[in-house]
Design a protein around this nucleic acid. Structure first.
Lengths: 188, 188
DNA sequence: CGCGCGATTGAGTAATTTCAAATCTAGTGG
DNA sequence: CCACTAGATTTGAAATTACTCAATCGCGCG
């Protein structure tokens, strides 16, 4: 089960078996059923999560009551309410499971300790967040310069696996269009 | 001049004078005049830049010839085409100066060496990119859930200094609306 | 004084949303 | 196996919003 994490880390830094055991000791395991919440708006966020299996969404509901999806997370991805996690403010997001999910959880304090203890792991996390940063820049550019249909096609080509697992309503909430509009061009 | 960088780093990790001298040795200085390009679309991106003084914009021009602004950078900010920088692909952005600008430049190799040599600096860069990551998440949420007017007001409240230095046309290109639309609500 | 750039305003057009209704689908129990 | 229900998707039509294109305005600078 932890081999998913092992592989994931190995793609960036190489760890010996004992080093990895050490790393793993900073994590706890959590299992959630479909529809269960991992983070609820307003609550405290003390952990960051690595998805071993399953699927989740992180969403923001605005004043008008509309839900917008900030990210999905499937096997191999990290998820949390990073604003709340890093700045220790109440969660602004709801994170819940779209499927039964198994997670590895690391608390802020443990991540801090792990990074202090292990330069390698600090490097790993820096690389991870850097690629996340770049991915988000691409999403911003896509939101600014492409229409909804191109964004749809781009997402479809980048994450075809995702489309087999999430409803079009949620895809629409991720892309920033109404589900009706998405429906009108997703057919063709 | 380098005190700007010193202060900037000190906000996250504390360095001795000699340590900072060491860090500084990985950087070079560059001065550009208003309108000059720092990065041009299609070129290779070998450096990341810290703004000592001045103002720049990083923009993407889509197939339709429309320019969209990914970021501005003023004193104390970092800028580059991070996709091109990290993945070593041709630049997709144009970065140019809106004012005369002084930069501290660090190459990929030097950043790599610096991070290997100094755990503190690796930590610094991780923290920096983490806060950038969160800021971008907020921008994505704003693009998804707020209309252009709220985005305008949010930006105005967050970066009032910026508005004294950039044209409304550029603000519009950052917010993702036409300058005419922005003009219609920025008056009131 | 006149040029040029940025900002504003107007009018028509295109795209998206909203609200409502109809359709389709998967899972449940008889 | 079939009927039934809940949720998701699609479709239609009206209303809203933002865009484009064009013209005008305002101001600083040579």
């Amino acid at each position: 089960m932890s081999t998913v994490l092992r592989q994931h880390i190995a793609a960036i830094v190489s760890l010996t078996d004992t080093e990895f055991e050490q790393v793993l000791s900073y994590f706890t395991t959590k299992k959630l059923k479909k529809h269960q919440y991992l983070v609820q708006e307003g609550s405290e966020v003390t952990q960051e999560y690595f998805v071993v299996s399953g699927l989740l969404k992180a969403a923001y509901t605005n004043e008008a009551g509309k839900e917008h999806i900030l990210q999905f997370a499937m096997e191999d991805w990290w998820i949390s309410d990073y604003l709340a996690y890093l700045q220790q403010t109440p969660a602004q997001l709801n994170i819940n499971c779209l499927e039964d999910t198994t997670l590895l959880c690391i608390s802020i304090e443990n991540k801090k300790k792990l990074c202090e203890t292990s330069h390698k792991m600090e490097h790993f996390f820096r690389m991870k967040v850097s690629s996340g940063f770049v991915a988000q820049q691409q999403r911003i550019l896509s939101l600014l310069s492409n229409d909804a249909q191109s964004r749809y096609e781009l997402l479809l080509s980048q994450y075809p696996r995702l489309f087999q697992r999430v409803s079009k309503t949620l895809i629409a909430a991720y892309l920033g269009v109404s589900r009706e509009t998405l429906s009108r061009f997703s057919g063709k």
